[in-house]
Simulated scan of single mutants.
Amino acid sequence: MDGIRMVLVGPHAGKDIELGGFRFEEGECILPSRGSEHAQRILSRYYSAYPEGSVEGRAAHQAWKKSQEEKSSAGEAAPAVSARDVTQIQDAMEDLRAELEASRRLREELEARLARAEAMKAAGTTPATEAPAAESQEKPPKPGKAAK
């Protein structure tokens, strides 16, 4: 053996792939015997590659197998989505789309107002004040506060 054989564990096991600048062929990569401690640490920590036959590698393989079993059993136990749930989700999506469209229209209107105001400012004229319709009307006096 020329060096330290690193073996991929998990979803990349057995694959031809490049991870972290290291080329794995059939899920294995050989590192030099000397001076590769940092590379081993990086490969183990971030890429699930462990020295062949190591305790850490076996533990990682067992943990990965267990997580896959849990995933498959959880997928089987998941309840089916009812037609009523689908309808509610579709209605909520339509409401969100309508709200998004209203926001887009408001943004476009405000952008147009801003452009007009900037154009008038550049021309040196003062814009006519645009008062909202509700504020431009006189408000009737509140009851109980009649003129004395």
Rank of each mutant, 00 (worst) to 15 (best):
E70L: 08
S44N: 12
S33G: 10
Q88L: 13
G144P: 01
S44C: 07
R84E: 12
A92H: 09
L114W: 06
Q90K: 09
P141L: 02
E94F: 13
I42F: 10
M120A: 13
L114A: 13
A131D: 11
A74H: 04
P143C: 03
I4M: 09
K66T: 11
R45W: 12
P143I: 00
E28S: 11
A122I: 06
A74S: 04
G21N: 05
Y47P: 01
E37S: 08
K142D: 04
L100I: 10
K15S: 06
E26P: 05
V7T: 02
R41A: 00
E111R: 04
E26K: 10
I4K: 01
E109H: 04
L100M: 11
R113P: 03
K15M: 10
G27Q: 03
R34G: 15
P143T: 00
T125Q: 13
P51F: 02
A123M: 14
A147R: 08
G144V: 02
A146K: 14
M120W: 06
R84V: 06
R84L: 07
F24H: 00
S136R: 07
A102C: 02
Q90P: 00
M93D: 14
V9Q: 01
A131H: 11
M6T: 00
E118P: 00
S103L: 13
P141A: 01
S33L: 13
R116L: 15
K142Y: 10
A122K: 15
R113L: 09
I42M: 12
Q40V: 15
A117F: 14
R34T: 08
F24D: 01
P79R: 05
R41S: 03
L8E: 02
K66I: 09
A80N: 01
F22E: 07
V86A: 13
E76S: 01
K65Y: 08
R104E: 08
G20N: 01
S33M: 12
P132S: 10
K145S: 12
P79V: 07
P51W: 03
C29M: 03
Q62T: 15
R84A: 05
K66D: 10
A146Q: 15
A133F: 03
E101W: 05
E37G: 13
D2H: 15
A102I: 03
I17A: 00
G21V: 05
